[in-house]
Simulated assay, not measured.
Amino acid sequence: MSVLETSSLTLGYSDTIIIEDLDLKIPTGEITVFVGANGCGKSTLLRSLARLLKPKSGHVLLGGDVVGNLSTKEVAKRLAILPQGPIAPEGLTVLQLVKQGRYPHQSWLKQWSSEDEKIVNQALKATKMEELSNRSVDSLSGGQRQRAWIAMTLAQKTDIILLDEPTTYLDMTHQIEILDLLFELNELENRTVVMVLHDLNLACRYAHHIIAVRDKKVYSQGRPEEVITSDMVRDVFQMNCDIIQDPLFGTPLCIPHGKGRRVSINEEYKEMISLS
């Protein structure tokens, strides 16, 4: 499988530096989640990993190759990205959208094949979009639309999938559906999945590896239980919180402090906090 990493990477827009002198290696075959405050550079970093943003200095390396030296088609064969809020042409059906994932594999000598058809059908099945394949993308609900776009990225058949806030604007049910799907892809097919997420608790539940970004650098990275601490949340998000153990999954659970309606805390909860 291809290894995705950066070497002395500096990113920015005009004279503004967003990420500076970053050396980073994405764990292969795992789910990695970028977390951090708005504007810290998570999405900028993700775009650069996919060769959508040219570095000011340094390199992104894909399987040891400098991404900037590879053709667009070659990158698309090895890495798929789902940007935030993608828009499909009006009237495009789900099937037509998913088929676009096979375009990097087409050429004058290699046209549409039975193998392409098989991969598209597998992507539709994996995302539970088979019955909606003839519907126009713009007629779908938010969760259905997101699954259609994920099906397209699956059809690219890449080792690495990058997703920028794939749960944004989705209700709780559809958020879990999307993250469960990505978790299964990682578990069953060993795909490397890299995401930007805002919800720390969902990040802890689904990620093997979390990277917290602050002040143009990686503030901390590692397993959720190593990264998600009250100190990290305070330093990165400027928010006080308690960190306890999720009673269902055993992962860190962030309880923010605030001025919401308070009720008396039972003894079990007090004990959970004292042990965290």
Rank of each mutant, 00 (worst) to 15 (best):
S2I: 05
S2D: 13
E5M: 12
T6H: 09
T10Y: 04
L11T: 10
G12Q: 01
Y13L: 07
I17K: 01
E20G: 07
D21Q: 13
P27W: 11
P27D: 13
P27Y: 04
E30R: 15
T32W: 08
G36C: 10
G36F: 01
N38M: 02
N38H: 03
L45R: 00
L49N: 04
L53T: 09
K54H: 06
P55D: 09
K56E: 11
S57Q: 14
S57F: 02
S57R: 15
G58R: 02
H59N: 14
V60Y: 10
G64W: 04
D65I: 02
G68C: 05
N69Q: 15
K73W: 02
K73P: 02
A76N: 11
A76M: 12
L79T: 12
A80D: 04
I81Y: 03
P83Q: 00
Q84S: 03
Q84I: 00
Q84N: 02
I87F: 04
I87R: 13
A88P: 13
A88K: 08
L92S: 10
L92I: 14
Q96L: 04
L97D: 00
K99G: 01
Q100V: 01
H105F: 03
Q106A: 03
Q106G: 01
L109E: 08
Q111F: 06
S113C: 08
S114P: 00
D116E: 06
D116I: 10
N121M: 14
K125A: 14
M129E: 07
L132S: 09
N134G: 08
N134M: 14
S136M: 11
S136Y: 11
S136P: 05
S139A: 03
L140A: 08
L140Q: 02
S141Y: 00
Q144C: 04
Q144M: 04
R147S: 08
I150T: 03
A151V: 07
A151Y: 05
T153E: 01
L154S: 06
I160R: 11
D164M: 10
D164Q: 09
T167S: 05
T167L: 00
T167D: 00
Y169E: 04
L170S: 05
I176A: 07
D180N: 15
L181W: 06
L185E: 13
L185R: 03
N186K: 12
L188R: 15
R191I: 04
R191S: 01
V194G: 07
L197I: 00
H198D: 08
D199A: 09
A203R: 02
I210F: 10
D215K: 13
K216Y: 06
S220T: 09
S220C: 12
Q221K: 13
G222Y: 12
G222F: 08
E225C: 05
V227I: 10
S230C: 07
V233K: 06
V233M: 12
R234D: 11
N240V: 04
C241Q: 06
Q245L: 15
D246W: 10
L248P: 00
L248D: 07
L253S: 12
L253H: 12
C254Y: 00
C254I: 06
P256C: 15
G258V: 03
R261H: 14
R261G: 14
E267C: 04
Y269I: 14
M272W: 04
S276W: 03
